[in-house]
């Protein structure tokens, strides 16, 4: 209760200070709806405020909840920017007419075309690759494709999180894009048949389970390896030391990647400032800073990597336009259900 009281007072104080600032004629704060939950993001927004004088307020929640909220608020929304950790959800928000297409030469020049919406509804800022984490002791192969995991020799050796997770869904969407629905369903079914256990837990749990010897390969996002590496818990750092990353499909279309990105909310009261914030997130400064805290990859080519990500080596990524992931999401979920991938 005490804690709650203190926090409540803190919140009131921040409200008061914000309204004082606006009385003095300073900028209204930009309102960001974000699904991302990294401390480092807060630091970046603070930096933006310092450089531009535009304060930033962040509402954090799950992407779906934020989409519902934007829908409910309609034209009366006070939100300026919508940020999620997945291109599929951004595409969905754009389709629902919740985002506004914006043109910015800076954004177009810095962010590669496949990592932004062709019409400018959303722009990606960080990259995450869905890779294979293997036990080097039990896996001799140095290169693997997603398609290899359904072969009989992998029976009982594969782990993945649930199909209800958006990362699994987006990988499946990329399989549909590459092979068509029928083959993608067969792949999902084959993968399920090779699972070492029914899907449970998140990507961290899959990595820990491979380290503990329960399975030999897990399908996970790269940054989870980084987050376990940074974890204060010894069992996490121990787990990371026992596994190795393989970027799949290097000899063909490349590893499946997704972005964390954002777009300007339709009806945003401060469109100009919102674009400024997006441009700031694509700036060299922000691009260099993102990967330190979240262990993702920068989206702007040529940005130097932190040591850890650099140690994983260069990789080729699937150049499927990410707007496809949103379009194929519903079909992906259906096919995974049909395949029995829990």
């Amino acid at each position: 209760m005490y804690l709650a009281g203190v926090m409540h007072i803190k919140h009131l104080l921040s409200l008061i200070s914000v309204s004082c600032v606006s009385l003095l004629g300073a900028k209204e704060p930009l309102l960001v709806y974000s699904h991302r939950h990294y401390e480092s993001d807060t630091a970046l927004f603070d930096q933006f405020t310092k450089e531009t004088g535009i304060p930033v307020e962040v509402v954090k929640a799950k992407a779906n909840a934020l989409i519902e909220r934007l829908k409910a608020e309609g034209d009366k929304t006070k939100a300026d920017i919508f940020i999620t950790a997945d291109a599929g959800r951004l595409g969905l928000a754009a389709d629902m007419g919740l985002l506004e297409a914006v043109k910015s030469p800076v954004l177009e020049q810095r962010i590669p075309a496949q990592y932004r919406d062709p019409k400018g509804f959303w722009y990606g800022f960080t990259l995450r690759a869905r890779v294979l984490v293997v036990s080097p002791e039990r896996v001799q192969e140095s290169s693997l494709d997603y398609e290899d995991l359904v072969k009989p020799e992998w029976k009982g050796r594969v782990l993945s999180r649930s199909s209800s997770n958006i990362y699994s869904q987006s990988l499946m969407a990329s399989m549909i894009a590459a092979h068509g629905a029928e083959d993608a369903r067969a792949w999902a079914e084959g993968l399920k048949n090779n699972f070492a256990r029914p899907p449970q837990g998140n990507d961290r749990d899959q990595i820990r389970a491979v380290a503990a010897g329960l399975a030999d390969v897990a399908v996970v996002n790269t940054y989870y390896v980084g987050l376990l590496h940074d974890s204060p818990e010894k069992r996490d750092t121990d787990a990371v030391s026992k596994v190795k990353i393989i970027f799949p499909n290097q000899d063909n279309r490349g590893s499946h990647v997704n972005v964390s990105g954002g777009g300007v909310v339709k009806g945003s009261p401060q469109k100009e400032d919102a674009i400024k914030l997006l441009e700031f997130l694509a700036s060299e400064e922000a691009q260099k800073s993102f990967p330190n805290g979240s262990r993702e990859f920068p989206v702007v080519p040529g940005t130097p990597l932190p040591e850890l990500q650099a140690s994983w080596g260069d990789f080729k990524s699937d150049d499927l336009p990410l707007s496809k992931l949103g379009e194929l999401n519903a079909e992906a979920v259906k096919l995974m259900n049909e395949a029995g991938w829990q």
Binding site: M1, L3, A4, G5, V6, M7, H8, I9, K10, H11, E39, T42, V58, K60, P232
Partner: peptide, 18 residues
């Protein structure tokens, strides 16, 4: 403890108590 104090910042848990 550090992680626990981190969530306090930015979240509006106080409001939910109220």
């Amino acid at each position: 403890w550090d992680a626990a104090s981190a969530w306090g910042r930015g979240s509006r848990i106080g409001e939910s108590f109220l």
